[in-house]
């Protein structure tokens, strides 16, 4: 048949292959494996290296040094307070922002995301220029004897500034994606807006909000640039774990490694928590 002939002709015209089908498949598989292995090693090796630089005995003994303990306590305290503020203010803010149209909404939308791309050192400098002792607003506060810069409060403010987008963005997209029919049904049933928010909106978005909160906590815990610019590096007052890692490079090297390992462990715990939560969310949907 003419059709078959033409197919056969076309096949005949194909150039002869240098490698057999099997060899080509093997090359592709090896290539893929090398790519996956190099990406994995690039990310994992530096982290693993930290663990090789210490021994369990050294790790445990530096764990009890005052510098390490104070940095750990300060970091956990400030990150928890920052997270609390972000949740308490960010949740209603994200909800009001989503459900209402108001002038300048696009600008607010951009501002929410700004800290994600702004270099943390710039954020810290900006906070200092505004709230520092001779800052634009800070100078008036110092008239009343209030000083924010280089205090624990400054650490918290820097963390909130840098870490809040992780939670607020997540909350915003969850509220936007929630089927409006849930809230509308609740309204027709006589529920007040506050009741709907508490009993319908929050429970239906809870697992997503928690994973946003975990991300925020992680970011606050790792905050370095804005903190050192705005809060300085005072042990026990503003020296959080990342700052202690940096300072100990020139001092107690093992203490630095110990804090670094602690941060690695916490980061892993955060990633596992988010994975578990997002799986829960998927099964809920």
């Amino acid at each position: 048949m003419p059709k078959h002939d033409s197919v056969r002709n076309r096949n005949c015209m194909n150039p002869p292959r240098i490698f057999s089908e099997k060899t080509r498949r093997t090359i592709a598989q090896v290539g893929a494996a090398v790519l996956v292995a190099s990406v994995t090693l690039y990310l994992a090796l530096p982290v693993v290296a930290l663990f090789f630089k210490t021994t369990p005995e050294l790790f445990l003994s530096s764990l009890t040094t005052p510098d390490v303990i104070s940095a750990l306590v300060l970091s956990l305290f400030t990150s928890t307070v920052s997270l609390g503020v972000v949740i308490l203010v960010g949740t209603p803010f994200a909800y009001i922002h989503c459900r209402n149209e108001y002038p300048g909404k696009v600008i607010v939308d951009t501002l929410i995301d700004l800290p994600l791309v702004l270099p943390p050192a710039v954020a810290g400098l900006a906070l200092l220029v505004l709230w520092g002792r001779v800052g634009i607003l800070g100078q008036y506060l110092s008239l009343f004897g209030i000083s924010i810069a280089f205090t624990t409060l400054a650490v918290i403010m820097a963390q909130i500034f840098v870490a809040s987008p992780f939670y607020v963005r997540q909350a915003k997209s969850l509220f936007e994606q929630l089927d409006p029919a849930y809230e509308q049904t609740a309204r027709t049933l006589g529920a007040s807006p506050l009741r709907i928010f508490a009993l319908i909106t929050l429970p239906l978005t809870a697992s997503g909000l928690v994973s946003g909160a975990v991300m925020t906590f992680g970011r606050a815990l790792g905050e370095f640039g804005a903190t050192i610019m705005f809060a300085g590096n005072v042990p026990g007052v503003t020296q959080t774990m990342p700052l202690a890692v940096y300072m100990n490079m020139a001092g107690d090297y093992h203490a630095g490694i110990t804090i670094a390992i602690l941060l690695v462990i916490i980061s892993f715990a955060i990633m596992i928590a988010i994975r578990l939560l997002s799986r829960q969310e998927a099964s809920h949907a």
């Binding site: 089927d179 029919a181 849930y182 509308q184 049904t185 609740a186 309204r187 027709t188 049933l189 006589g190 529920a191 007040s192 319908i200 429970p203 239906l204 809920h284």
Partner: peptide, 18 residues
Amino acid sequence: VEHRRIGYVFQDSVVFPH
């Protein structure tokens, strides 16, 4: 809305899943 005393059943049977 909350004071209109209207029973409204939406499309796709909206129940509160939680």
